[in-house]
Design a protein around this nucleic acid. Structure first.
Ligand SMILES: NC(=O)c1ccc[n+]([C@@H]2O[C@H](COP(=O)([O-])OP(=O)(O)OC[C@H]3O[C@@H](n4cnc5c(N)ncnc54)[C@H](O)[C@@H]3O)[C@@H](O)[C@H]2O)c1
Ligand SMILES: NC(=O)c1ccc[n+]([C@@H]2O[C@H](COP(=O)([O-])OP(=O)(O)OC[C@H]3O[C@@H](n4cnc5c(N)ncnc54)[C@H](O)[C@@H]3O)[C@@H](O)[C@H]2O)c1
Lengths: 224, 224
DNA sequence: TGATTATCAATAAATATTTATCGTTTACTG
DNA sequence: CAGTAAACGATAAATATTTATTGATAATCA
């Protein structure tokens, strides 16, 4: 029996995978074929033990004294994320964010390829964004079927997000990467992943607030 | 003694705060003055108990049968995040992503205001992005000092990120919101918050992979 | 060749987070 | 105005995640 199927990888580990992957690819490009958990931990500011635990989820075994084989780890992580064969996606909403995402080279590393762009603004339809032509929303279902796409990236205004989400689901989309700061109500079997910049900014804000408070506490205690 | 200072709010709670905030503001705009944890949980697909625990971190007390006062919660959450008085920031790198961020109206809700944009591309310097003029990097330190800014948003190419980060730190910046998929090595006291789209996409990918595997498992077991 | 050391795997302990239980409060209903 | 049900807070239990401990292994060097 396959070891992988027996347990599911902790979410925090999944979330760290992309950072490992990037670093590992850097090492590979630099011609390194082995890397230790200690080394990875140093670069990512994690503890070696945690890196080892994460790596154990990939099924790759390390070698004492030298660590893990770089290429093997890359393959294993990509496989676990399903990034080993490219995933096609459509993008809805060719606005500021949408265009930036379409132009983002980095997606290639995640096996993500935006193969179609749709918008409902007549001025945008027919224009091309980084080589991809913006299509009318009327072509939605046809495009999804023709390209056999399962994933949609949503970058439309919040007011229409629910409506548009329902349209893409009706067209056959199974997973939505939602950049709109709004919770979508969709059938159970549709996978919705929200990316919320505010989440990250909230972390930054609270860390800054804490640091300011600590500083003023230290100052006060020095005065005593 | 202040209750808040005694314990630090769990990071997962901090991360949920922005979503609560948005929903609460929707309720406020709709003229609702009370909301129950049950209601919030329903809309955000959380469990009521978790919402109550999160709310308890804000210090706001609810009332049996009716819930929490909407406005009081908003104020409390904003206060805990430090979003109650606007934070100014500069943005470095007026490229695709940088411009999208500058134009993003949503930041106003987080108390974030981008008050200056800097770039090293002569073609971009002097142009305006959503009313803000792009300045040369030579003005970095002067701008930071003049505007009294503590936070920088980093949207430059990965190759120069470390170098640029060191420059903004030298100019007096204390916190960096880093959109570049690269770990920065900076002094201990500098707060660096990375926003990594790949993290979110990894989650989506792994959920899709799991769902596909489950489906094929079900199919197989039906065949038996 | 044998000692040394960096590193790994497995297991255990500690910590953090989520979820459940229980008794209490308050608005609403009849 | 008593009974009922929805919702709260506090505390406890369960679960998830991180960190520590221990013993084993393989490269390196005297
Ligand atoms: N700009 C940012 O940096 C940023 C950051 C985080 C989140 N977001 C979110 O991303 C979304 C888009 O932001 P933006 O700044 O790109 O806005 P935008 O207005 O530039 O782009 C929205 C696009 O959606 C299109 N659109 C509108 N209604 C549509 C419909 N019914 N069907 C198809 N297309 C439609 C518009 O024509 C436009 O091209 C918003 O929900 C915003 O909150 C933006
Ligand atoms: N485009 C996206 O959707 C996206 C998504 C996630 C992350 N990112 C990351 O954000 C960063 C920017 O991406 P982008 O697509 O906007 O790239 P871009 O090339 O459009 O923009 C980069 C900007 O930085 C400026 N720049 C270059 N060197 C500089 C320097 N030394 N000092 C100051 N400014 C300098 C350039 O002139 C340019 O305006 C990249 O690191 C990218 O990986 C982009």
């Amino acid at each position: 029996m396959n070891k992988e199927a027996l347990f599911s990888i902790p979410l925090p580990t999944i979330r760290r995978f992309p950072a490992y992957l990037r670093l590992l690819k850097d090492f590979e490009n630099a011609g390194e074929s082995w890397v230790s958990a200690t080394r990875l931990a140093e670069d990512l500011r994690l503890k070696p033990i945690q890196v080892r635990k994460d790596m154990s989820c990939t099924g790759v075994e390390g070698k004492p004294k030298v660590g893990f084989e770089v290429h093997e780890l890359i393959m294993a992580i990509e496989h676990h994320l399903g990034w080993d064969n490219a995933t096609d996606a459509i993008l809805i909403g060719a606005g500021n964010l949408g265009n930036a995402l379409v132009g983002y080279k980095g997606f290639a590393n995640y096996g993500l390829r935006i193969v179609a762009i749709l918008d409902n603004d007549k001025k945008k339809i027919g224009t091309t964004v980084y080589g991809v032509t913006v299509q009318s929303m009327e072509h939605l279902e046809e495009t999804v079927v023709r390209l056999g796409v399962n994933i949609a990236v949503l970058t439309v205004p919040a007011e229409v997000a629910q409506e548009v989400a329902e349209m893409v689901v009706a067209a056959g989309i199974k997973g939505i990467w939602n950049f709109v700061p709004k919770n979508l109500t969709l059938p159970e079997d549709i996978i919705v992943q929200r990316t919320d910049l505010a989440t990250s900014f909230a972390e930054l804000s609270s860390r800054i607030k804490k640091s300011i408070e600590e500083k003023s506490r230290t100052k006060r205690s020095l005065q005593n």
